[in-house]
Structure formats: structure tokens, C-alpha cells
């Protein structure tokens, strides 16, 4: 959690889209920005990209006011995936409330996915976060491409970890809202356990998730 100010009745949460370089983290946020209801969120800030590669991060802010008047901001970040930007990843990862790990489904990317996930584990430990309790979802992106890891293989590898796994094509715009929705859900549960969002502020999970994942055109479903 970035900030919780009881006096100002304000809470700022941080979600981080992590993953190897070019796995589609920024595309995920761009699509969320396009798909989701404009009311209750800000614009996507794409910070310093060079040749379509993120150097710092992207930021998509949301905000909800709980019935109690508590203002909750949810800021979704991406990290740069390239190995050399590890310091930036650590900096962005600080005080994260939830992480979506965006893996590249293409078979040759298996090693990069593995190394990036290991890097996530190391950096979480570095910034003092516990991977066992931190809300975490995994998305296997680029399902629209050929030469990709089979779904059954992915399930057999990730199933035992208990981490929710989603298949998606950020480019075609499917699977990413489910990823985000589940992460938001887990983040609510995690935050509610400590800050009693429902009990003290009258904000329940359905309301929270519904507000954050409301599509701009609710009638159109893929």
C-alpha cells in the first residue's frame, strides 16, 4: 500500500504488471484503458518509452469512494521487463498490493518467463513482500500466436502453485479483463482483512470489483 491516511480518509493501493520484456504488460494496460468505463479512472500515463519499450513504467489510475467516504485510489503500474532495468523494477514494486505476472506464451520464451518470475520472487523478498500472501495472478499472453505453450502444459505446471492462471491475447483484447478482475478481487480480500473495507467503510467485494472492471459499453461482450 502506497499510503493510508486516516485523517484525510484516503487510501492508495498499488498493482504491478510484472513479466519478461515484450510480454505485453503495456498492451494489457492500453487495452484496459480502452475497454473500461472512463468514469472513475484517469488516463493512462505512458512514461518515457523508447522504441515501444518501457523504460520507467506506465500508470493507469482508478478511484472509488466507499460509502463511508473513504477515497480509494488504485494505481496500476507496469515495470520495464528488460534485465538491465532491475533497479526500476525494485523501485516500482515497493509497497505493491498485488502483482499480475504477464508471461509470454511463445515456446522460445519459456526460459525468459522462468527467469523473470524468479526475478519477481527475488525482488519481492528485496522490498520486503511475501510472495505467499501477496495477491498474485499469472497471465499467459499472446495466445493468438502460433508456436505457443499448450494449455494443458501450462495448467500442469502452474496448477499445483495455486496461483490463478489466465490465458489471454492482449492484442485481441480478450482474457485481460479476467486477469485484472481476479487480481482486483484478491487485492480487495487482502486489503479487507487488514483494513476492514466492508465492516468499517461499507465497501464490499462485488461493489469494489464491479466499479473497477466496469466496461465502457457493458452491453458488448466478446
Amino acid at each position: 500500500m502506497i499510503e493510508y491516511d486516516e485523517f484525510d480518509n484516503k487510501m492508495i493501493l498499488k498493482l504491478v504488471y510484472y513479466g519478461p520484456a515484450l510480454s505485453g504488460k503495456t498492451t494489457n494496460l492500453l487495452q484496459l484503458h480502452d475497454i473500461l468505463e472512463k468514469q472513475g479512472r484517469g488516463d493512462l500515463t505512458v512514461l518515457d518509452t523508447k522504441n515501444d519499450r518501457t523504460i520507467f513504467f506506465d500508470l493507469l489510475p482508478f478511484f472509488i469512494t466507499a460509502p463511508s467516504g473513504l477515497k480509494i485510489k488504485l494505481k496500476v503500474f507496469t515495470v520495464p521487463g528488460q534485465v538491465r532495468h532491475d533497479a526500476t523494477r525494485k523501485a516500482v514494486l515497493q509497497r505493491a498490493d498485488g502483482v499480475a505476472f504477464i508471461a509470454d506464451s511463445q515456446l522460445p520464451e519459456e526460459t525468459n518467463n522462468f527467469e523473470s518470475f524468479k526475478n519477481l520472487e527475488d525482488n519481492l523478498r528485496f522490498v520486503g513482500l511475501d510472495i505467499e500472501t501477496l495477491p498474485l495472478v499469472v497471465q499467459f499472453n499472446k495466445r493468438d500466436l502460433k508456436n505457443i505453450a499448450g494449455e494443458s502444459d501450462i495448467r500442469s505446471v502452474w496448477g499445483p502453485t495455486g496461483i490463478p492462471v489466465f490465458l489471454a491475447s492482449a492484442l485481441e483484447g480478450w482474457g485481460l479483463l479476467e486477469t485484472f478482475g481476479r487480481l482486483v478481487e484478491l487485492t480487495y480480500e487482502h486489503t479487507d482483512r487488514r483494513y476492514h473495507l466492508k465492516e468499517k467503510h461499507g465497501l464490499d467485494k462485488e461493489m469494489f470489483v464491479q466499479r473497477l472492471t466496469k466496461r465502457a459499453d457493458e452491453t458488448v461482450r466478446p
Binding site: I2, F77, Q94, R95, R125, F126
Partner: peptide, 18 residues
Amino acid sequence: MDDCKGIEYNGNIIGADK
């Protein structure tokens, strides 16, 4: 925050409101 035991850098948390 109490769930953060890692290294802190001058309270400069990325995403803090300005």
C-alpha cells in the same frame, strides 16, 4: 506501512500522491 519490511528509500514511494 506495516506490511513493508524491506528497504525504504527516503519515503519516496513511486505512486505517492503529489
